[in-house]
């Protein structure tokens, strides 16, 4: 059933257009593609964050499907209300979809998300992960990786950026025994599009965690957003996976990793890292992949 949606078959319509995101913004690509897959029946909920800031500037309104801004903490609870309300007034063929940042999801919004999954509400929650609070000027979130420099985790002589590892939100969500959860990246839109399609047909709560780099916060040229996303997967610091029927499945199992150092040092947020810091990240990566390969289904797939 995988890989049915392609650039050829996806709708020509655009639902997120004319927006004010910075040139080369990964989050705006994730939102644009998600809505193209879901179509005009999508009712989107966006909390405070870059994608609501760049999409709703009255009277300039860049969503052509029904869309609303939620409180920062309340993406998932508003989705619950939207879904129940639309059903109550007899709307057919709609999908309540959340499009929230990493801060809005992993930190302040995690309680509402956990509650919605617990109730198994019929919603799709998409977290576009740019690894920091970008809209307020690049502060560390729970999804900022170890070593990254942000305005709240500066790098100096003694401390080299963020001291804490990236929260594993995909597995936190899966631990609720959610019907469907997946990781994705804008570096592989074919995989992302088909996971959205699959998630949209799930009865109950579905969650997709898509890595969507921010050229400003990561310190990369604006034309390298896609390449950096691909490098992140190739060096093993991100992986494509799904959780379904109580099972974890790895979608892509690289036989060897590309240089983690090359990935890190091509971004100014990691420029200060020393070899010892990079070793820590590589060791965390290796430990993670050892567990994944031991415990998850790793049967090959064509992506």
């Amino acid at each position: 059933m995988r890989n049915q949606i392609t650039a050829k078959t996806i709708t020509d319509s655009e639902f997120f257009y004319g927006h004010k995101a910075c040139a080369g913004c990964g989050g705006s690509l994730a939102v644009r593609i998600a809505l193209k897959v879901l179509g005009e029946g999508a009712i989107s909920v966006l909390p405070a964050g870059c994608m609501s800031a760049v999409g709703f500037n009255y009277p300039h309104l860049c969503f052509s499907n029904n869309s609303i801004i939620s409180t920062f903490a309340g993406t998932a609870s508003m989705l619950t209300g939207v879904e129940a309300g639309a059903r109550a007034v007899g709307i057919k063929n709609f999908k309540a979809v959340g499009l929230a940042g990493d801060g809005g999801t992993a930190d302040i919004g995690i309680q509402a998300l956990s509650g919605a999954i617990d109730r198994n509400d019929d919603i799709l929650y998409i977290c576009y992960d740019n690894e920091a609070y970008m809209n307020t000027g690049i502060q560390k979130s729970g999804l900022t990786p170890f070593g990254a420099k942000t305005t709240t985790t500066p790098s100096g002589e003694n401390i080299h950026g963020n001291l804490r590892p990236k929260k594993n939100l995909f597995e936190i969500v899966a631990a609720h025994d959610i019907p469907y959860a997946a990781t994705a990246s804008i570096g592989n839109l074919k995989d992302f599009m088909n996971k959205i399609e699959k998630a949209s047909k799930i009865k109950g709560t579905a969650y997709i965690h898509v890595v969507a780099p921010c050229p400003i916060g990561w310190g990369i040229p604006v034309n390298e957003t896609i390449e950096i996303s691909q490098k992140m997967m190739d060096c093993g610091l991100w992986y494509l996976a799904e959780y379904e029927n109580g099972q974890f499945k790895l979608n892509r199992n690289p036989s060897e990793f590309s240089s983690i150092k090359d990935y890190l040092l091509s971004q100014s947020r990691f420029k200060h890292l020393e070899d010892a810091d990079i070793k820590i990240l590589a060791a965390q990566r290796d430990a993670k992949w050892t567990t994944i390969r031991k415990n998850w289904n790793t049967a090959e797939e064509d992506l």
Binding site: Y17, P59, H60, L61
Partner: peptide, 20 residues
């Protein structure tokens, strides 16, 4: 002025070409 915070979807009033 509109009475509430809701307004017409997909209503664009400015171009982005000047950013380029």
């Amino acid at each position: 002025y509109p009475l509430g915070t809701a307004s017409e979807a997909g209503y664009l009033v400015t171009k982005n070409s000047g950013w380029r």
